[in-house]
């Protein structure tokens, strides 16, 4: 049920600009209405993409959240890999890493002198 609460918070945040403003102003206030563990609360408060990925947040929800946080694409992919390295395999859901950490997309823009945004 707790993962459900994490995802519901992110679902609401992703699609509600008023809630985004509340979250920007006071993260604890925005999170107060959700039944979260300390680990989940910290992950959301810090924008810890790697941990949220490992917790099992649906990839579409997490991707939209990363876009909201304006995390660059390759940084976002690496954050998920780092999360698996640090916390272990994805614990729930259908978005597990199956490629062993292999890079399937092209060269990160940092290696080409480009910015994502």
């Amino acid at each position: 049920m707790s993962l459900y609460q994490v995802q519901k918070f992110l679902y609401n945040l992703n699609r509600d600009e008023q809630m985004q403003q509340v979250f920007a102003d006071n993260k604890n206030k925005a999170l107060a209405n959700y039944d979260l563990t300390d680990e989940e609360h910290a992950a959301l408060e810090l924008g810890d993409i790697g941990l949220l990925y490992v917790l099992g947040v649906n990839g579409q929800i997490l991707m939209h959240y990363a876009a909201y946080l304006q995390i660059e694409w390759f940084d976002y992919l690496q954050a998920m890999r780092d999360g698996v390295d640090k916390h272990g395999p994805v614990r729930a859901g259908i978005y597990a890493m199956t490629g062993g950490g292999k890079l399937f997309a092209q060269t990160p823009p940092s290696d080409k002198g480009e910015s994502f945004q």
Binding site: Q60, T98, L103
Partner: peptide
């Protein structure tokens, strides 16, 4: 496709 995972780009 494996979107929104570290495997993004795998086809």
């Amino acid at each position: 496709h494996w979107p929104a995972t570290p495997d993004s780009g795998k086809i």
